[in-house]
Design a protein around this nucleic acid. Structure first.
Lengths: 143, 143
DNA sequence: CCCTTTCTAGTTGCGCACAACTCAATTGCG
DNA sequence: CGCAATTGAGTTGTGCGCAACTAGAAAGGG
């Protein structure tokens, strides 16, 4: 395979490859519900937080409106969310789950277990990886 | 990992977010040369291996022809690579660096150092992360 | 109170990723 | 050998991700 021209470079590539491999694990189940991984992430935020502005979704998922606007539009078309203008600040748009969107939470309740099973890491390794990825995410230029 | 604590889900999201944060570190330098991160990855393989078929590039980068064909076409338009049909097997296409493509190797020689500097990890942490990501990449369904 | 500055969401454009497909070249099995 | 199955590259279509931009609403200073 690729000879290391420097460990950092290898790590960067592995990050890129591992991220895609990860979403590939989710794909079969998500496909069955007509969802993509980013759409699933947005739904997860709504399941935990309830009604949320596009702005807050962006801060939480680290995505801008250029990505979120069409994504949420598709979730709305699918009937999983509703989008309403904020009343006290008409710039904001509040995203809220429909019954269909709420229902998905229980329908896909076993997804975490599936993923945990596919990724063969111990509890300690999960925690280590969690911490290391946290450090990567908080690097310079990501403030 | 038998009991899903929700941590796996967090790790998956962090993988997704960290990967994008990583490429964002490369972006300013790559932009200056009119390159994207996947294009840079392809060039790195060619710098190290010399002439390589599209098929082998795909195996190494874990990308299919649907992604590579247009990407390599753009690198060819930019003048960094040449694409020629294989002589022994006319199905294959061999990708090779032009002078311009070779020159980029020295022009961007300081990029690894930039990245290592931005990502504030110790040598040991880099190695740990390398190993953990390797495990993630070799999970079930990624064979 | 007006006017500039800032902020939120959305739109456009481009380049990945990936599925599904086409087509030609090669392989392999009878 | 003949021909079906496989393989390698490319094309098409969809949905991100991100830069650059727009439109409209709010904030704030004079």
């Amino acid at each position: 395979m690729v000879e290391p021209t420097g460990l950092e470079q290898m790590v960067c590539f592995q990050l890129y490859a591992a991220s895609r491999a990860m979403t590939a694990v989710y794909r079969p189940t998500l496909d069955a519900h007509g969802l993509t991984y980013p759409q699933y992430l947005a739904l997860r935020v709504l399941w935990h937080r309830g009604p949320t502005t596009v702005r807050d979704l962006g801060k939480i998922l680290d995505l801008d409106s250029g990505t979120l606007s069409p994504l949420l539009k598709r979730l709305e078309t699918q009937g999983h969310v509703r989008r309403t203008r904020g009343t006290h600040d008409e710039r904001t748009v509040i995203v809220d789950l429909t019954d269909s969107g709420h229902a998905l939470r229980t329908t896909m309740a076993d997804l975490p277990a599936q993923v945990a099973c596919a990724v063969d890491l111990t509890e300690d390794e999960f925690i280590q990886l969690h911490q290391l990825l946290g450090k990567v995410r908080s690097m310079k230029g990501t403030a």
